[in-house]
Amino acid sequence: MPLDIVTVPCLKDNYAYIVNGPDGIALIDAPEAKPLINVLEHRGWVPDVIMLTHHHNDHTAGVAELCEQYGCKVMGPAAEADKLPELDMALEPGFCGGTDDGLVEVIAVPGHTLGHVAYHYPEAGVMFTGDSLMAFGCGRIFEGTPEMMWDSLQTLAALNPMAIVCSGHEYGAANAAFAQTIEPNNPALISRVHMITAARAKGQPTAQVPLSMELQTNPFLRASQPAVKKAIGMEGASDLEVFTEIRARKDKF
């Protein structure tokens, strides 16, 4: 059974995901309950589990109401168990569970928060990255270090380039504008910006794209590229130093 994935807009610019697969129905993050309940009720689905990527309230605020309504279990990173809603299962990086397209791997992606995890479905070719790897960008480094975030992005970048990256916010337009300040002459970036502009004009989400597209256009993933180093005047710098500079520029953008 292939995965049936529904993208659910929540709050101002968050996304949650409903994943219906061979092992049942999972919610990836729960920013608020009502939009998720509306989709679930419309489809006649009952969630079995909520899988949290990290502890920030804009990814967890709907957990209590959803659990009360459906009796679903809650999973999340063990490293943040003290900051999350009560967990039925605290997940360690490296944990694998599920069958066929529902097989999921828990990947540590610290940086935005110290215990942040991503959920990778290798057989289905999809990853849910929360506020780590995002469309054209990466999450702000609130708790970790630039080195942590760079290592996390490198871990994700090494996965199947055909896998779809599903991130936690609709930041495509803003991140695209910043990316153009780093590589204004990148043909793949220019093409993608046009796609983003057209999609947002129609109210369509832009936070779900192949990893290959991120590798071609995301300045945070491209800090090791000579063209990027030259563009920002850091030809002799390490990859980490370049990433750190790009992240600092984005924080001020």
Results as ranks from 00 to 15, higher is better:
residue 80 E to R: 09
residue 78 A to V: 10
residue 103 L to P: 03
residue 84 L to V: 00
residue 95 F to A: 07
residue 110 P to F: 08
residue 103 L to K: 15
residue 77 P to V: 06
residue 85 P to E: 10
residue 109 V to W: 04
residue 83 K to D: 11
residue 97 G to C: 14
residue 72 C to S: 09
residue 86 E to D: 09
residue 100 D to G: 04
residue 108 A to T: 14
residue 95 F to Y: 08
residue 83 K to R: 15
residue 109 V to R: 01
residue 91 L to M: 13
residue 73 K to Q: 14
residue 95 F to V: 11
residue 80 E to S: 13
residue 104 V to M: 15
residue 85 P to V: 05
residue 102 G to Y: 03
residue 102 G to T: 04
residue 103 L to R: 15
residue 105 E to G: 04
residue 95 F to G: 01
residue 96 C to F: 11
residue 96 C to R: 13
residue 84 L to G: 00
residue 74 V to T: 14
residue 75 M to T: 13
residue 79 A to H: 02
residue 105 E to I: 07
residue 102 G to F: 02
residue 89 M to A: 13
residue 79 A to W: 02
residue 100 D to C: 02
residue 93 P to Q: 05
residue 73 K to N: 09
residue 88 D to L: 04
residue 104 V to A: 14
residue 102 G to S: 07
residue 89 M to L: 13
residue 85 P to K: 07
residue 82 D to G: 04
residue 77 P to I: 03
residue 90 A to E: 11
residue 102 G to C: 07
residue 83 K to I: 01
residue 108 A to H: 14
residue 105 E to R: 13
residue 79 A to I: 01
residue 92 E to D: 13
residue 76 G to C: 06
residue 107 I to K: 06
residue 84 L to C: 00
residue 105 E to Y: 11
residue 102 G to E: 03
residue 85 P to F: 07
residue 81 A to F: 00
residue 76 G to K: 00
residue 106 V to P: 01
residue 90 A to G: 10
residue 77 P to M: 06
residue 102 G to M: 04
residue 96 C to I: 06
residue 77 P to N: 09
residue 85 P to N: 08
residue 100 D to Y: 04
residue 106 V to A: 06
residue 83 K to W: 10
residue 77 P to Y: 05
residue 73 K to R: 15
residue 110 P to D: 10
residue 79 A to G: 07
residue 98 G to D: 02
residue 85 P to R: 09
residue 79 A to P: 01
residue 100 D to A: 11
residue 97 G to F: 15
residue 96 C to P: 02
residue 98 G to Y: 02
residue 80 E to W: 04
residue 84 L to R: 00
residue 74 V to S: 05
residue 104 V to R: 11
residue 78 A to L: 15
residue 91 L to F: 10
residue 86 E to F: 10
residue 96 C to T: 11
residue 80 E to I: 06
residue 76 G to Y: 01
residue 90 A to V: 09
residue 78 A to P: 02
residue 73 K to C: 07
residue 82 D to A: 12
residue 98 G to A: 07
residue 101 D to N: 14
residue 84 L to A: 00
residue 83 K to L: 14
residue 99 T to P: 08
residue 107 I to P: 01
residue 79 A to T: 03
residue 86 E to L: 12
residue 91 L to W: 07
residue 101 D to Y: 13
residue 76 G to W: 00
